[in-house]
Simulated assay, not measured.
Amino acid sequence: MEPLVETLIEDARWQSVGLGALAERAARAVMEDQALPDAGFAISLLGCADVRIADLNADFRGKPQPTNVLSWPSDERGAEADGGAPDRPRPGPADMPEELGDIAIAWETCIREAEEQGKPVEEHVTHLLVHGVLHLLGYDHVRDGDAALMEGAEIRILVKMGFKNPYE
């Protein structure tokens, strides 16, 4: 089975939590929940430090501070109507999978948030990865209806994976 997520570890501390394996599991859980095949799609993930994600956040969002996770969908898949289902991507052939987009995740911010929330790091990181993959699939949380749809998907996926509701 081909990997769904290509993980680039830029900050070696990510090795300690097995970022690649967490990302693969999270992405496959999202695809299953969305009734999409995990074959025929590809996601790129960067495991970095706060300083790198702050640069990315400044470049792409005009916010020069670290954040936990950033996503860059390959296509605009968001629904026109608030709370509507995003457009579904079509898988590519095995030798040229459809690129869903890129995700970056920052070590220090994730560790700090997990500690503040009293959660295991792997659980918090998995939640952020599920969140990031849903963004690649067109989910968003700017409008209220979209946020409710996205949070519902996150909760459903994480509970199925054996984690608690992250919003409780």
Rank of each mutant, 00 (worst) to 15 (best):
L56Q: 11
L100I: 08
I53C: 01
L56N: 07
L36V: 11
A49N: 07
P66M: 12
A54K: 09
F41T: 01
G78D: 08
R52W: 12
F41I: 07
L70E: 03
M96Y: 00
G101A: 04
P37D: 01
A85C: 06
D59P: 00
R77P: 15
L46W: 03
L56M: 12
L56K: 01
R77A: 12
K63Q: 14
P37Q: 01
D55K: 00
E99V: 02
G47C: 06
L70R: 04
G78N: 05
F60Q: 05
F60P: 00
I103E: 04
T67I: 12
F41C: 04
D87E: 12
A104G: 10
V51S: 13
L45T: 13
G78R: 06
E76L: 14
P89R: 04
A54V: 12
L45F: 11
A54F: 10
G47N: 09
S74Y: 07
V69Y: 12
G47E: 10
E76C: 11
A54W: 11
E76G: 13
D102E: 13
D38N: 10
A79M: 07
P37K: 00
D59W: 10
G101T: 02
M96V: 00
A49Y: 00
C48Y: 00
A42W: 02
P89F: 01
D55L: 06
D95G: 10
F60H: 11
D95P: 12
L46G: 06
V69E: 14
E98N: 12
E98K: 10
D87Q: 13
N57P: 03
P73A: 11
S71Y: 05
F60L: 05
I103R: 01
L70T: 02
I105N: 02
G83K: 06
R61G: 04
D102K: 08
V69S: 10
W72Y: 14
P64L: 03
N57E: 04
V69K: 11
D102H: 09
K63L: 15
F41S: 05
L100W: 02
F60S: 01
Q65H: 14
G78W: 12
N57W: 06
T67C: 11
D82N: 13
R88Q: 13
R88Y: 08
G92R: 07
L46N: 05
A104P: 05
R90T: 10
I43R: 03
S44R: 15
R90Y: 02
P73F: 07
F41E: 02
N57M: 03
G84F: 08
W72C: 08
A94N: 10
V69L: 15
G92H: 04
L46Q: 06
R90W: 06
V51L: 13
A94K: 14
I53G: 00
P37E: 00
F41W: 00
P89Y: 01
G62I: 02
I43P: 07
